[in-house]
Design a protein around this nucleic acid. Structure first.
Length: 126
DNA sequence: AGCGTGACGAGTA
DNA sequence: ATACTCGCCACGC
């Protein structure tokens, strides 16, 4: 019960963001500094779509929000933006998991067990 | 209309 | 720990 609320959104400009995208970005902005949420978590929170849909939104409009706080469930940093993300994580104190042996070019992953944010038990208009 | 692709995720080998 | 498969769903060709 969510796939029928389609708004044609005619030629009027100013807001071309699909409602779903807007919600995803909204959640992304809620994530506290130093914490992260997975794509799947966001989707569950919204009770709509799935990880891939959230990922699509982030890929397209993520630049407008703290995109580094929305991560993959396995904690792997976003390919292509690893250094930028890493900078934010170190700055925010996000728990990271570095390999015991530091190999060159190896990038740390997020310590999901500690960094994952559940939503703080907040309510999201339900 | 089918088919491949993806800022995904969980399960299996 | 890595590799592969399958399920998922919106998009583009």
């Amino acid at each position: 019960m969510s796939r029928e609320n389609r708004e044609p959104e005619d030629g009027d400009s100013a807001e071309e963001l699909p409602e779903y995208a807007e919600r995803v970005l909204e959640v992304a902005e809620l994530i506290p500094s130093g914490r992260v949420m997975t794509y799947g978590d966001v989707a569950e929170w919204l009770e709509e779509g799935g990880p891939r849909q959230v990922g699509r939104v982030m890929a397209l409009y993520g630049g407008a929000v703290p995109w580094w706080r929305v991560v993959r469930a396995d904690g792997v940093l976003l390919p292509g933006h690893e250094l930028r993300a890493l900078g934010h994580y170190r700055e925010e104190g996000t728990p990271l998991r570095e390999a015991a042996r530091s190999a060159e070019g190896h990038v740390p992953r997020i310590d999901m067990a500690r960094a994952r944010w559940d939503g703080g038990g907040q309510d999201h208009g339900r």
